[in-house]
Design a protein around this nucleic acid. Structure first.
Lengths: 138, 138
DNA sequence: ATACATATATGTAAAATGCACATAGAGCAA
DNA sequence: TTGCTCTATGTGCATTTTACATATATGTAT
């Protein structure tokens, strides 16, 4: 079997097609900010909460690196928390800049949802929203 | 001014924040496939149609490279069209595999819209769809 | 001739992401 | 006290995606 044929074979198995990744770039950032807006937290805990947003089986490396980058950009701040048993935790807090950043993200996502609605209108002949609103019909 | 302060300065100018990009990876692929499902086309024309999907000021390089990659993966096919004045065009056609690929993309995007709705529910306290349905209220 | 619109493509670098691996404290069981 | 597991934070490297700059060629209008 040729390399290319094998590649296509792999693409069509249960794991789905290669390259289909319907999440936006940097999706982790707004998810973290939204979590931190509710309450301060740390990497290990944020990792678990992020799973709920489609970051299943997240690799720790990406998360911790993202947090450090976010701190460099001034949208979060951190300090060590050592006043308890177990390994030290780096506790994160959202900054004012972080809140603005989250608001900006939200606006971008809103815009993008309209674009996607447009996409579905062409794909199915009507928008996803209209589909939902048609309700019980089969 | 420190490097970091300057960096933050740049981030908060009119161009918006750095790294905010609400489009999913490979978004260009389903957009091209959707276009080709309607009628056969070529790079230069597809570029214009893609603009309508938020690929404003698209750079040609990315588009042409993406098309070649898609052909390698077997989701489109191409042939030169020289039977007219002007530079030759490489005409593209969607394949059956391409149609399946598009269907798969659509399912992923649907899933993604639900995830985003979830995000907005936490962000505003209600979903975007509910916002839209509330209608005229200010 | 030369400027412009059409049309396709490459080279290189940056950014984002995944995967594997490293480090270390604390609790607990053998 | 040795080893095992859970918690917790990170680094190094490779791959993938994307942007930006540049190259090439044809036909048309001036």
């Amino acid at each position: 079997m040729s390399d290319e044929a094998q590649e296509r074979e792999v693409e069509s198995t249960g794991r789905g097609f290669r390259g289909v990744e319907a999440r936006p770039r940097n999706w982790l950032v707004p998810v973290i900010l939204l979590s931190l807006r509710e309450w301060n937290s740390y990497g290990y805990e944020l990792m678990e909460r992020a799973s709920a947003f489609g970051f299943e089986a997240m690799n720790p490396g990406t998360l911790y690196r993202t947090l450090r980058q976010m701190e460099k950009e001034g949208i979060v701040e951190s300090s060590w928390e050592t006043s308890r048993g177990g390994p030290a935790r780096r506790m994160y807090t959202i900054t004012d800049a972080g809140r603005s950043y989250l608001d900006f993200w939200a606006k971008s996502l809103e815009q993008y949802q309209r674009t996607m609605d447009n996409f579905f209108r062409l794909y199915t002949g009507r928008s996803l929203r209209e589909e939902r609103e048609r309700g019980g019909e089969k």
